[in-house]
């Protein structure tokens, strides 16, 4: 029972970590909290649905969906955020809200206000059993995919030139540009990565929810934002730590709170966030450079 809840917590934490990381990558480079990140997830979800309806095999459909998320993120940067480059944090924030609202309405009116069922393959609802201990295939995939994505990102940031430039840009963008690295490339890569992470998170999210709807991006982006703030805005390790912490606290509270208090779960979680920020105002693992906010 306890081991089971730990698996649940890690699985949810992994998804939150992917989401928070997507927000943090963009924030660390351009100082924008992209509230339209959730709509990238929604878009990937619809892309998955469309691919499955068109009869693509499941792995191909997932690939198409994740690529759609990544491309949409790059397009979003090109269309909405590039003209706003250099604008104040507030303007950027409002732009991201505008993009988010716009996409939601497009999904609602262009596709359907009704959630669409996504038939996940039967094996995803299966479970392994060891005696009376069972692990669902869904949570296992969730944990494995999150871990692989985090490792791959770490390798990219440490080993590739673009990755190194991105880490440097997070600390001091002007110096990186003086080194002859084009700003647009760095920023586009940051959005591409955040889109990839959003796409992956969307696949895990949809696998657990079996449906996509126009508003599905709202909750995850909120959770990711909380995780990123707790972890330390703009800090990538912080975002991962924040994501796992949030997932673990949520599952533990859900598992242990008595029925009468359970509805206050979110309030308790957010009080915990305030407590963490009181002790560590810059977050668990603060960004190397104080950010622009």
């Amino acid at each position: 029972m306890i081991a089971q809840q730990i698996i649940n917590a890690v699985s949810l934490g992994g998804v939150y970590a992917l989401l928070a990381l997507g927000l943090a990558i963009v924030f660390s480079i351009v100082g924008l909290i992209n509230f339209a990140h959730g709509e990238l997830m929604t878009l990937s979800g619809y892309a998955l649905l469309a691919s499955l309806v068109l009869g693509f095999p499941f792995p191909v459909a997932v690939l198409v969906a994740v690529s759609c998320g990544a491309l949409a993120a790059v397009a979003m940067e090109r269309i909405a955020f590039r003209p706003m480059r250099g604008a104040s944090v507030t303007s950027l924030l409002l732009t991201s809200f505008a993009v988010s609202s716009l996409l939601k309405v497009v999904f609602q009116n262009g596709i359907s206000a009704r959630p669409q069922a996504v038939a996940m393959p039967g094996w995803m609802t299966g479970a392994f059993s060891f005696g009376d201990f069972t692990i669902g295939v869904g949570p296992s995939i969730s944990i494995v995919v999150s871990a692989l994505a985090l490792i791959a990102l770490e390798v990219f940031l440490r080993r590739s030139v673009t990755g190194t430039a991105m880490r440097a840009a997070a600390e001091d963008f002007d110096v990186v540009r003086l080194m002859g690295i084009p700003a647009s490339r760095i920023i586009a890569t940051a959005f591409l990565l955040s889109g990839l992470l959003a796409g992956l998170a969307a696949m895990l999210w949809v696998a657990q929810r079996a449906s996509v709807d126009p508003l599905m991006g709202f909750t995850p982006v909120l959770k990711a934002f909380i995780a990123a703030v707790v972890g330390g805005l703009g800090s990538l390790p912080g975002a991962v730590a924040g994501g796992f912490l949030l997932g673990i606290i949520e599952v533990l509270l859900q598992a242990t709170l008595p029925g009468a208090i359970a509805p206050y779960r979110d309030a308790i979680v957010l009080s915990g966030v305030i407590a963490v920020l009181l002790v560590r105002p810059q977050g668990l693992i603060p960004a190397v450079r104080a950010q622009r906010s």
């Binding site: 649940n8 949810l12 949570p139 999210w205 657990q208 909750t219 959770k223 859900q254 029925g259 359970a262």
Partner: peptide, 17 residues
């Protein structure tokens, strides 16, 4: 008895209960 929040992503804890 169990409870959930509308829009909650994860039911795993409740299901384990």
């Amino acid at each position: 008895r169990g409870t959930f929040s509308m829009g909650q992503p994860d039911f795993s804890a409740e299901i384990t209960n």
